[in-house]
Design a protein around this nucleic acid. Sequence first.
DNA 1: GTTTGGCACTCCCGGCCCGGGAGTGCCAGT
DNA 2: ACTGGCACTCCCGGGCCGGGAGTGCCAAAC
Lengths: 338, 338
Amino acid sequence: MDDRKLEVLRAIVEDYVSTQEPVGSKAVAQRHALGVSAATVRNDMAYLEEAGYIQQPHTSAGRIPTPKGYRLFVDRLGKIKPLSTAERRAVHRFLSEAIDLDDVVTRTVRLLAQLTHQVAVVQYPSLNRSSVRHLEIVAVTPARLMIVMITDTGRVEQRYVETPAELSEDHILELRRLVNEQLQGKALADAPRIIADLASLARPELRDSASALARVLLETVVSRTEERVAVAGAANLTRPGNFFSGSLRPILEALEEEVVLMQLLGRADSNALLTVRIGDENEIDDFRETTVVTAGYGPGSVVGHMGVLGPTRMDYPGTIAAVRAVARYVSEILEQNR
Amino acid sequence: MDDRKLEVLRAIVEDYVSTQEPVGSKAVAQRHALGVSAATVRNDMAYLEEAGYIQQPHTSAGRIPTPKGYRLFVDRLGKIKPLSTAERRAVHRFLSEAIDLDDVVTRTVRLLAQLTHQVAVVQYPSLNRSSVRHLEIVAVTPARLMIVMITDTGRVEQRYVETPAELSEDHILELRRLVNEQLQGKALADAPRIIADLASLARPELRDSASALARVLLETVVSRTEERVAVAGAANLTRPGNFFSGSLRPILEALEEEVVLMQLLGRADSNALLTVRIGDENEIDDFRETTVVTAGYGPGSVVGHMGVLGPTRMDYPGTIAAVRAVARYVSEILEQNR
DNA sequence: GTTTGGCACTCCCGGCCCGGGAGTGCCAGT
DNA sequence: ACTGGCACTCCCGGGCCGGGAGTGCCAAAC
């Protein structure tokens, strides 16, 4: 595979991304000073098509890249173009105004959508990668408690507990001390084990209440609300160029399914800095024409993922740069708030 | 205005809503046993058109209702059709599984979207219609506090406070007692007044910290995150019949703008049980072809609104019944959790 | 006076055809 | 190995046309 052939592929990808129209040999020869004629480009194109990097929508049309072609472009040809300093400054300013975790996530997802003109998805810090900062127990009525769990990433979870007996103010203080002694600073992944022993550590008269508490706590740390995600920029799906061959329907539906979104953001265990999944690499039927660019974020270690979702014909260098920059800055913020 | 003319209007609205196609005189005469011929119906139609209740998309097409026509239908003709018992049971089961306020809102908005096949919008309980259940103060570091406010509707707000001096465990206990004594059970609308005096009630050595705390508390109760809303069912915009004459773009954009959504849900001060705003009654340009059905909800008094948004050609009786039923049941749940 | 059947008229809609244009593949020449 | 030329293919948009649905009006009937 010739150097010039690679240049031709790059030209096709770049032109197609910016014009959204199949690109012909003449256009490539003229607009990118390759120093060869259109006929030569045609020969190279025939080769690239044979090799599966580009294709024709129909005979006698220009060429468009295949997923395989985009893959080669991303891996070997695209030079990531960093954000402008103005953009960079805007990111910093906008994110540093966030007042709490919810706000950080909300702002992040909007920012990503706006920077990339695509649909953005941000996962809330995953509970099983966080640790307990504090557990609070509040009496709502004498036999009804509210427990509030605050994690090191700033997530707050609350649950109600019905206790078998009425509890005095002192009892509550005691329970609060107990659970915090045991759980504070511990990783949530380890919490179930600790919680199992919780009741046995309480004084006999409190044991029943403690085990009711433990039951709800356990539910909280393995809760199904664990994987929350925020979405923004759905309107970008209707941008002229972002038109998907099918209808928007399945995409819009998928965007409301947490399960699907989590699948798109990637395995929870992946610690890769940045991932680009192109077309059918996504393994979900409705996303055959979709590219997903994701990055992990977190203070030190990865606690969640964020990403952007758009048509395979996207501006890869720009999108990758934006996702990476935002993920880095959010990580910094979480680091500071620890 | 003749009784039969009203029947003709009802027939037109019902047929148009179900078929999405202009309805002609023949269809009306046949399908709705009016006992008159098509020619007679034509005369009535001419009258209804003259009066502004229906219109022709073009000469020699059938008629479709105007917003004014829908309005008359809703006010005088539509008999609300209650949910089936199966639906009713599904609503109860689905909502009663909610584990916290967030979950209630999320489930509600999905339920509404699913029941009505439209876009659903639910406002979180408005802070200034709630009261304080409990305030929690947690030391993150000796000079950094986290305050968590829990309202009677179950909303949780958190903020960080940097204190001018390091505080001992006892100091924190004291501050916690102070703010709870002053604020517990008080309406948030009254809170600013109370907070203003907070610092003066603290012991001299805590006064600086108390006023730092008060500043953040004040910010919290008048916070701009006050009006949170949840949206679901955007995919329903792409249903065949829900096709808006323009593109989806402006609608999708509006759905991500809290300000616009709040405007659609209606003035915060409206206590009307149920509101239907048809077409240009919405006073927002992008929603000229949209109907919004909203209801207030809350334990006893209204603390927020929920609603459904769809094309003017919607199933009014069904939608109204669904919104009303869900709003009632959510109110019950909030009542129980108090 | 209201209702009805008849009838001419209007307008949309889908299918069809057609010419222009863009792009290709191939070939012979450099 | 590259280039210019050329015939070929196919999409696309515009224009044309006939069928069908629905109307408005009128004269006759109830």
